[in-house]
Design a protein around this nucleic acid. Sequence first.
DNA 1: CCAAAAGTGTTGCTTGTACACCCATGT
DNA 2: ACATGGGTGTACAAGCAACACTTTTGG
Lengths: 229, 229
Amino acid sequence: MSQLNIYPHPKHYVAVDCAIFGYEEGELKILLYPRGFEPSLGKWSLMGGFVQDNESVEVAARRVLMQTTGLREIYLEQVAAFSEPDRDDGARVISIAFVALIPIHKHNKDMVRESGAVWWSVTKLPALIFDHTAMVQKALEGLQHKATNEIIGKELLPSKFTLMQLRNLYEAIFQKAFDPGNFRKKALSFNVLEKLNIKNTTESKKGAYYYKFSILNQQDNKSKFLENK
Amino acid sequence: MSQLNIYPHPKHYVAVDCAIFGYEEGELKILLYPRGFEPSLGKWSLMGGFVQDNESVEVAARRVLMQTTGLREIYLEQVAAFSEPDRDDGARVISIAFVALIPIHKHNKDMVRESGAVWWSVTKLPALIFDHTAMVQKALEGLQHKATNEIIGKELLPSKFTLMQLRNLYEAIFQKAFDPGNFRKKALSFNVLEKLNIKNTTESKKGAYYYKFSILNQQDNKSKFLENK
DNA sequence: CCAAAAGTGTTGCTTGTACACCCATGT
DNA sequence: ACATGGGTGTACAAGCAACACTTTTGG
């Protein structure tokens, strides 16, 4: 069926490009792949792939992510379609950009290393091919939007984490400081975090309790997590 | 160049589908086209079209809108890509959904009538083909999101309007009542509305001043227009 | 006069923000 | 002892929601 050409219109290559975000060492990072050939040798690109006949763009994105990180369960969200006719040097390719969030400590480092990919801090990105810089920009905005409306971290932090680590994640995402006391109170008011009886003593003398996202993570608080300044 | 087949991957039809919103008689409406043939005879669909070789999806959407409404300057925003392999009966088509806002009183009614299109209230939509119901749903969410973050109306209301008309538009978009006094104060606090020296006397005994969107419509107020309940 | 919308004012509550302040502890 | 983060409390301001109240005028 998908082979039929019943419409008198041109067909196009359709690709997916994934902005894969991870959080490590206090920095928000993104996974980039080096381009090993001309044109644009030395430039970096998002991980991408072409959409096949039997798959939706979401399925294609998951396939690409599985192939490169080894992770099957990944948070994935559409960003936008990028479709300028000349955006790709090689041919006309319409690409759907995605945001993917992965727990950076869980992914298969060997698979990533083999592919030549490198984690870059979002604060100092290299030159990217085609319109990938715009894709990253939009993906980051999407991530900020999600982080504004709910408490994120489940997809980026270890299964247990301190409130300081959560705050540092937010500071990395928004590139601004949050008041420790106020952040704590707001985060806890949502009743999605569960306090554990273990303390992390590596990051402070006193030690801070670990928290985890509760299994029933329904937000009690109906409002947004962050306001808009 | 766009004829090249340099990638060993399948190509796909790519379409655009536009959820065209208008506001009339106190109701938010959407423009639908009847399907005149089987399968799905009698069902309605969004206005759509196929993406050609030399155009981006945005350009394709504008072409479609121009062809059906006669309007060139239209607010347009991507919603999402819809790409389930079997979403279209005829062939595999990946479609990018758009929100379009048009001043319903300005569009070319003859062009619309010729095409058989009908304005439907969003509160009582008929059955739609394929996944168009989901597209409308997502488009409406996008419209609500935009209306939450800024004062919309420029694209949907006549050039001059009363604050009651603006409020009624918002009530139609969100399907809920807003307090007249509070709505007025919040709307005016953004300094994007300019009071005219003309009154509308058709909708109230006392008469209400007309307003227009000021040319420099920079929002003074940095916060969102509406809060989130 | 009455109804209905226009327009303004008031009040209480919630929430964000900017802090102060004590606690615990490794160095 | 002291610096550092952990954690709690407080005081002020801003913003929202509810609603009272006055104005205007057509019917």
